[in-house]
């Protein structure tokens, strides 16, 4: 479904991603792990069209996405729940969700999806007319995910959804990810919480200084001794 080939991205002179290749097949959960500054966020932002690659290809459903605007990419079925949530704190929860559906032309579909989100995250419904800035960190994360689902994506990019959350909420977030996959959304998941992420995903990539160093089925990587020492905190 998503195929990244030999991608290189730079911020001015700083090369953040170099020669990275990565594939996500339809229906998969694919995890990307890697230390701080490895280039995970940069990769996702490039797929979303916010950053332009220096070289390389990004194919989605067989078509090149390079050079398209972020809204064109959302319209084609890729949605991004960004690192740090980036919800609009001064807008209400309902408004945040509506903005996730900004490019949709089917008001009734948007309405029923909004109900679906409220079903999935009841706390959002209870507080739907309040400013999103009043939500707790975990609730804001749920809002960020719900907002990104409002565009009805085929592929969801999740950047560190469990960051800074209490263990119980981390569980809840990973449950949601699995549930979404079961509903047919393909997921590219970036996580520092590698243990949990590998457990729910099909395949995984390890990024170091902007390029892939290890890849394979998650069940294999979970037992990879190098990985265990570096990212899983086990030995």
């Amino acid at each position: 479904m998503l195929e990244i080939r030999n991608l290189s991205v730079a911020y001015g002179k700083i090369v953040a991603v170099s020669n990275l290749s990565l594939t996500v097949n339809e229906g998969e959960i694919v995890t990307v792990v890697g230390g701080n500054g490895a280039g995970k966020t940069t990769t996702l932002r490039t797929v979303s069209g916010v950053l332009k690659p220096r070289s390389g290809e990004i194919l989605f459903k067989g078509k090149s996405m390079v050079g398209l605007s972020p809204e064109a990419i959302v319209t084609r079925g890729i949605s991004h729940s960004p690192e740090g949530r980036m919800i609009f704190g001064r807008l209400t929860i309902t408004e945040n969700l509506k903005l996730g559906a900004y490019n949709r032309k089917d008001p009734s579909g948007v309405k029923s999806d909004m109900e679906r989100m409220f079903g999935m995250f009841p706390v959002l419904e209870q507080r739907k007319s309040q400013r999103a800035g009043t939500l707790s960190g975990g609730e804001q994360q749920m809002l960020a995910i719900a907002r990104s689902l409002m565009s009805r994506p085929n592929l969801l990019l999740l950047d560190e959804p469990s960051l800074g959350l209490a263990p119980l909420l981390v569980e809840k977030i990973f449950d949601v990810v699995v549930e979404l996959r079961n509903e047919g959304v393909t997921i590219l998941l970036v996580e520092q919480n590698a243990n949990e992420a590998l457990r729910i995903s099909d395949r995984a990539y390890v990024l170091e200084t902007g390029t892939v160093t290890i890849e394979g089925p998650s069940t294999e990587l979970i037992n990879n001794p190098m990985l265990r020492a570096a990212y899983l905190g086990l030995d």
Binding site: R45, S48, V50, P70, E71, I73, V74, T75, S79, H80, P82, M86, I87, F88, G89, R90, L91, E95, L99, G100, Y102, N103, R147, S148, S151
Partner: peptide, 15 residues
């Protein structure tokens, strides 16, 4: 209003 609060986020989510 969303763009005024966070232009980068607004772009990212497809506004």
């Amino acid at each position: 209003r969303a763009s005024s609060e966070n232009l980068r986020a607004a772009r990212l989510i497809g506004i």
